[in-house]
Simulated scan of single mutants.
Amino acid sequence: MFFTMKEITRWLGITVFEILMWLVSLIITCILVLVRIEWNLLQNWSWWFFIGPVFFADVLNAYFCIIIFIRMYLSGVLKPAALRLLWSIFVLSLGFVFKFLLCKKLETHPNPNIDFSSVLAPIFIIIQLVVVRACNMN
């Protein structure tokens, strides 16, 4: 069973444009990481450079979420605008924490001071929130 785009956008609380931004940044990040790992190029560069496109997509996503909030607020839809802004800020902040911890983990790989469970904890929280949201939708 495949989910429709309408279901995905309702459950995740994001638009199709935001999904497209995330996918493009993920593809660029995967290509950069592939260049580093498989072809042994750019080995002396920091991991922050390779994860940078995903951070840039988060900044653009936050910018567009603020624009959507302002437009919804000006049109008089106050409660859904505030709920959408809170949801977006929460998901974006958890995503930022995950990417930040992942970069810190990759930078200190020979001396791991961060566990993978703590790196993945924000993702688990996002998954739980999406499940709760999906149950409330139906």
Rank of each mutant, 00 (worst) to 15 (best):
M1P: 08
M1A: 10
F3E: 06
T4H: 00
M5P: 02
M5L: 01
K6P: 00
E7F: 13
I8V: 10
I8G: 03
W11P: 07
W11A: 15
L12F: 04
G13R: 07
I14H: 02
T15F: 01
T15Q: 00
V16L: 09
F17C: 05
I19A: 08
I19P: 03
M21F: 14
W22A: 15
L26Q: 08
I27H: 00
I27P: 01
I27Q: 02
I27F: 00
I28P: 06
L32H: 05
V33T: 12
V35K: 12
V35Q: 15
R36W: 01
R36K: 06
E38W: 07
E38D: 08
E38H: 13
W39K: 11
W39Y: 13
L41F: 02
N44W: 10
W45N: 03
W45F: 05
S46M: 00
W47S: 03
F49L: 12
F50K: 01
F50S: 01
F50R: 03
I51M: 15
P53E: 04
P53Y: 07
V54R: 12
F55D: 08
F56Q: 14
F56A: 13
A57W: 08
D58R: 13
D58N: 10
V59R: 05
N61T: 14
A62L: 06
Y63H: 13
F64I: 06
C65E: 09
C65I: 04
I66F: 12
I68R: 12
I68H: 12
I70C: 08
Y73E: 14
V77Q: 11
V77C: 12
P80G: 01
R84Y: 14
R84A: 15
L85S: 04
I89L: 07
F90G: 15
F90V: 11
V91H: 08
L92W: 03
L92M: 02
L94P: 03
G95S: 14
G95E: 05
F98V: 01
F98A: 00
K99W: 14
F100I: 02
F100Y: 09
F100W: 05
L101M: 05
L101W: 02
L101N: 04
L102T: 11
L102I: 09
L102Y: 11
C103W: 01
C103Y: 09
H109S: 12
N111L: 00
N111S: 04
I114A: 00
I114E: 00
I114S: 03
D115T: 15
S118Q: 14
S118E: 11
A121R: 08
A121D: 04
I123L: 02
F124L: 13
I125K: 09
I127V: 11
L129T: 12
V130W: 03
V131A: 02
V132I: 08
R133H: 07
R133P: 07
R133Y: 09
A134I: 05
A134Y: 04
C135F: 14
M137N: 04
